[in-house]
């Protein structure tokens, strides 16, 4: 039972990584007042580029860099369309998601002729697991030793980066000067503008960070979790990350907890399959699958706490008011 629990929690930590990275990206974008469910597209693009570059250079780090660049490219497309040209943010997101889906498969097919799948990466060109010091030796310590060995040690570097990103994001958003401007831009752009700070520049900066994180989440899928890219690899995880961010009320730590919760739902879902539980019997997998979405709606509806979006979200900032 104890080891089962540890294994489930271990799987939860791993599966939450792409969600955490993308959700942090979402925090930056939405805190600045820009809707972003183009995370799905950035994740997909990042996964494709990471696998491709890692294959060509035989270096996972170059792959990661490539993923970050494509993430930034996509978020700059989003910024140009919705910040500079004041187009519709929602439509821009839809465009990026569909564009990424088409582009990754078309290019993948044109370059590798394997139906969008990229070549298998050797272990050297991937992010493989790292054993933390003394993990094996400390196993003898009851409880804590197990936790250290199973949960904390033995992940790849992106896992650790993802969880470091959470306090970092929190610090930037709530403690730094940039964070203050960021939040103000999302709440009251007019005041920010009056104070002589460029609303659009702040949003651009936010979206650059957003692109970096979105791309990284994709790199995790194709160069850490697996060793290749396949079409539609993100499979809705970008939307799930967005839901987690909202569920976390646009706050990094809460968003991370929501990601963990959603990943936990997925982890137990694999294990509960066909296993009857006491009292309720066999739980349909679909019920567990729908938990994240239902929870998000319930929370948004204010039945459990209240999630309030940044006030200026979705509104392009137009300087010339008549």
């Amino acid at each position: 039972m104890w080891s089962d629990l540890l294994l489930i929690l271990d799987a939860t930590l791993r599966m939450a990584v792409p969600l955490v990275l993308a959700a942090m990206g979402g925090v930056f974008a939405e805190r600045s007042g820009v809707i972003d469910f183009g995370l799905e597209g950035k994740m997909l693009g990042g996964a494709f580029v990471a696998a491709t570059v890692a294959h060509l250079t035989q270096s996972a780090w170059m792959g990661l860099l490539g993923a970050i660049i494509i993430g930034i490219t996509f978020s700059m497309m989003h910024a140009f369309a919705s910040v500079t040209k004041q187009g519709n943010q929602v439509v821009s997101c839809v465009a990026i998601n569909i564009f990424a889906m088409g582009l990754t498969t078309v290019l993948g097919q044109a370059w590798f002729q394997r139906g969008g799948k990229t070549p298998q990466l050797p272990p050297e060109a991937r992010f493989t697991t790292i054993e933390l010091p003394f993990a094996e030796e400390l196993r003898v310590v009851p409880v804590l030793g197990d936790i250290y060995y199973e949960l904390i040690s033995g992940h790849n570097i992106l896992v650790y980066i993802a969880y470091i990103m959470v306090p970092l994001t929190a610090w930037i958003v709530f403690r730094s000067r940039f964070g203050l401007r960021l939040r103000a831009t999302g709440e009251n752009p007019l005041a920010v503008d009056t104070a002589g700070i460029s609303v659009n520049a702040t949003r651009y900066k936010a979206l650059i960070i957003n692109g970096i994180l979105g791309g990284m989440s994709g790199a995790y899928l194709s160069t850490a979790q697996l060793a290749f890219f396949v079409k539609d690899m993100s499979a809705g995880k970008g939307y799930l990350a967005l839901a987690a961010m909202i569920f976390g009320k646009w706050r990094p730590f809460q968003a991370m907890l929501a990601c963990l919760l959603f990943a936990f739902a997925e982890a137990i879902q694999s294990r509960l399959q066909g296993v009857p539980l006491p009292i309720v019997g066999v739980v349909p997998v679909q019920l567990i699958q729908s938990i994240p979405y239902i929870l998000t709606v319930v929370l948004l509806a204010g039945f459990v706490g209240k999630a309030v979006a940044p006030k200026a979200i979705g509104e392009p900032f137009i300087k010339e008011h008549k």
Partner: peptide, 13 residues
């Protein structure tokens, strides 16, 4: 049919 990540997780479990 096309979810290698989940396939990997199931096998790992």
């Amino acid at each position: 049919w096309n979810d290698p990540a989940r396939g990997g997780e199931l096998a790992k479990s």
